[in-house]
Amino acid sequence: MSEAHHPAAAPPRAVPPAPDGDWPIATLTLRVNGQAHRLAMDTRTTLLDALRDHLGLTGAKPGCNQGACGACTVLIDGKRMNACLTLAVATQGQEITTIEGLAEGEALHPMQQAFIDHDAFQCGYCTPGQIISAVACIREGHAGSAEEIREFMSGNLCRCGAYPNIVKAVQDVAAKGGA
């Protein structure tokens, strides 16, 4: 029998056994889009799964669950982070902003409007992460040129290949005074 381990196959067997076969449940408070939510969940739950499975906020998307694609990008205390690499329990006391919290009421956020205006997406799956990342990119001061935007937006993969239009959308918002 082969014991070969490979990322495409089963994870390694060296996973530590859960205490008493069970895993601790944490009771925690998540502050998301200005609202506090008291929740109980498995301590292994990622912020991405907490948002999607516990709060029904499905705008942030799973794409790789290893921080490689950026589809799950959210703001944590204003910084863009991969929600798939962040444990929910580690974000207590922090302010989380998702794509659902970006618009002001019915009015789209300028970056959302710019993505529509420049056709900066096709399938739309990476788009929530791109938009969150783009907002942060400008706030960080990394939108000074097309080249800089390309570099600082490279953590968000777009398989449809909308990159040139994403750059235009970010430039547009930056030129109009930011995000």
Partner: peptide
């Protein structure tokens, strides 16, 4: 466009049901 830039567009795995079970696959290493 508006559904896609606001996160409102519902893709297959954005759906859930009461009592839904989560599946995980075991793959052959051979």
């Amino acid at each position: 466009g508006p559904a896609k830039v606001t996160g409102a567009a519902r893709y297959a795995l954005d759906n859930s049901r009461a009592g839904m079970l989560h599946a995980a696959l075991v793959l052959s290493p051979v």
